[in-house]
Nucleic acid binder design. Structure first.
Length: 254
DNA sequence: ATGTCACCTGGTAGGTGA
């Protein structure tokens, strides 16, 4: 089983690239972030023509998530039960016996801002719900744009980024607590090339200089850990003519 | 480098978020 996540930064703009990627990589399921589409504009017909069922949850201008799968997802949930949120950030469904939680975690802007406080509240809400969800669905994958770089080796310039958004102790502490529920960073189950990033700022020629962060993560539950065969970042779409600022991340399960 | 992109409102640019 192959799973993938991609922050497409506008599905309206990236749909042709996404359809191309699906045709080349044929994941069994894929989650998307930053679709930036209201639900009436979601291009489900294009996905159906490509062999994918879709569940989607969007809003105007910002955020928006989706779950694509070859077989229909069941028990679909939108956002975090028990956490009131006006923004469309999470979509969850069961595909082929695996509980798939696709998330677009808040960016958080900067420590000390209201957006940072919201990020902390959101992370707490996610953790409280996931603790229950894992008891109901031991085979669970949490994947998406976490907007947190787990470790200094996930940051191109850890000195410059120390204490900055995506790299604060508070964010990393929340990530550790999430993982303490029984989730492991699939990418780090394998030896990886140094300087492996999943996001490069559009500014500053960051991709050309390979100045990025690894903030798009795939966490797998303990019950699935032994079946993880590979986890890779596909940089190729970042070289497209009009790329997303994020690259897809792919998980292969036995 | 302060180097971009996407989307909105409301125009023929400016603001916001990332």
């Amino acid at each position: 089983m192959k799973l993938a996540t991609w922050n497409v930064n506008s599905l309206a703009v990236r749909l042709p690239q996404l359809l191309d990627w699906l045709a080349n990589h044929h994941p069994d399921a894929m989650v998307l972030q930053e679709t930036k589409l209201t639900d009436d504009k979601f291009p489900h017909g294009e996905f159906e023509a490509a062999g994918y069922r879709a569940e989607w949850f969007g809003q105007k201008t910002y955020n928006g998530v989706a779950l694509l799968s070859k077989t229909a997802a069941t028990d679909v949930v939108r956002n975090i039960p028990g956490f009131k949120d006006d923004l469309a950030r999470v979509i969850t469904g069961t595909v082929d016996g695996v509980r798939i939680v696709g998330g677009y975690f808040p960016n958080g802007q900067a420590p000390g801002t209201d957006k940072f406080d919201y990020k902390m509240q959101w992370l707490r809400g996610l953790r409280e719900w996931l603790a229950d969800e894992l008891t109901r669905h031991p085979k669970l994958v949490l994947l998406g744009d976490f907007n947190i770089a787990p470790d200094d080796r996930d940051v191109y310039d850890p000195v410059a980024w120390a204490g900055q958004i995506h790299c604060t102790d508070e964010e990393r502490d929340h990530l550790r607590k999430l993982m303490a529920l029984g989730l492991v960073d699939a990418f780090r189950l394998f030896e990886q090339p140094p300087k492996s990033w999943s996001w490069w700022d559009y500014r500053n020629l960051a991709f050309r200089r390979n100045q990025g962060l690894r903030i798009d993560l795939i966490l797998v539950s303990d019950a699935l850990k032994a079946s993880v065969q590979a986890c890779t970042i596909d940089r190729a779409p970042r070289r497209n003519e009009r790329p997303s600022d994020h690259a897809p991340v792919v998980l292969t399960l036995a």
